[in-house]
């Protein structure tokens, strides 16, 4: 059994997929940055940003449902911002009476909480579109174009190549353990052994995974050296961007800039 469901890339023939990965990468980062700078409570701007991200989702053929399901990942973290509703001072919106405590939700608090949740939700959708519409090697090209150090990009690339191999190994280890001892996913099943023993077994599995990785990296290095690798990372020169891509990049950045100016001038 191999793990292929890991890769979030969804092959489609949409205009978003055809866009140059460098343009997509820069636009995704610019979009997230714009969302981050937008002051709390600038609702019309949030709505426009959401409209943009949803429009791109539709255009990309990834399916709004797909992106939404993945975007739920960030939800648990919203809890971290929850207390802010009650701790900021300002106009009282409502009060909760919980036993000995009296929680007062303030207007600035509520506003900031909803802003954080919305910003986070909008940003994560942009990141999902990028990952869903761009194959990983193209993302590496984009990272090279924005001057991420070559060595780091090469490490990223090698990690991606062996990620599936290592995850397969980890799954084999998990399957072997599930067949023999100490793990129970269901709460009504009792796992074998004491807690400390189970922890150390998981550790032993991690240890053997690392040892295998060490040995594998030795073999990989030797194979690379046998084929003439001498520590230099060779890569093709990046092709120049087509006029259409420049146009998309320029127009989109201009739109984001206008949104940003509006949000700061009116709501800042």
């Amino acid at each position: 059994m191999h793990i292929h469901f890991l890769d979030p890339y969804q092959p489609r023939l949409s205009p978003v997929h055809r866009l140059d990965p460098r343009v997509k990468f820069v636009l995704a980062v610019a979009f997230i940055l714009t969302t981050a700078i937008t002051p709390p409570g600038a609702w019309p701007v949030y709505i426009l940003l959401l409209a943009i991200v949803l429009a791109v989702e539709i255009l990309s053929d990834l399916g709004v449902g797909y992106v939404l399901r993945r975007s739920m990942l960030a939800i648990p973290f919203v809890l971290a911002a929850f207390p802010v509703i009650f701790t900021l001072e300002g106009l009282t919106v409502f009060s909760l009476d919980i036993g000995p405590w009296m929680l007062t939700a303030s207007q600035p608090g509520l506003e900031r909480f909803i802003s954080i949740a919305l910003k986070s939700w909008i940003s994560v959708q942009a990141a999902i579109i990028l990952a869903g519409s761009t194959p990983f090697p193209d993302l590496l090209v984009a990272m090279r174009a924005v001057k991420v150090p070559r060595l780091l990009v090469a490490i990223f690339g090698l990690m991606w190549r062996y990620l599936f191999v290592m995850v397969d190994e980890a799954m084999r280890l998990l399957r072997a353990r599930a067949a023999r001892s100490g793990h129970a996913d269901r709460s009504d099943l009792k796992p074998g052994g004491k807690l400390v023993w189970r922890g150390r077994m998981a550790g032993g599995m991690a240890g053997s995974l690392f040892l295998r990785a060490f040995e594998r990296s030795d073999r990989i290095y030797m194979a690379m050296a046998a084929r003439g690798y001498n520590g230099e990372v060779h890569s093709f020169a990046l092709p120049s961007l087509s006029p259409a891509n420049w146009l998309v990049l320029g127009l989109s950045l201009a739109v984001l800039l206008i949104l940003l100016i509006i949000s700061i001038l009116i709501f800042g």
């Binding site: 490490i155 090698l158 990690m159 290592m166 690392f210 990296s217 690379m224």
Partner: peptide
Amino acid sequence: QIPLMGVLAAAIFAG
């Protein structure tokens, strides 16, 4: 560096 770092990063991820 590249093979060692890359494969170990994959191992940590899988770990």
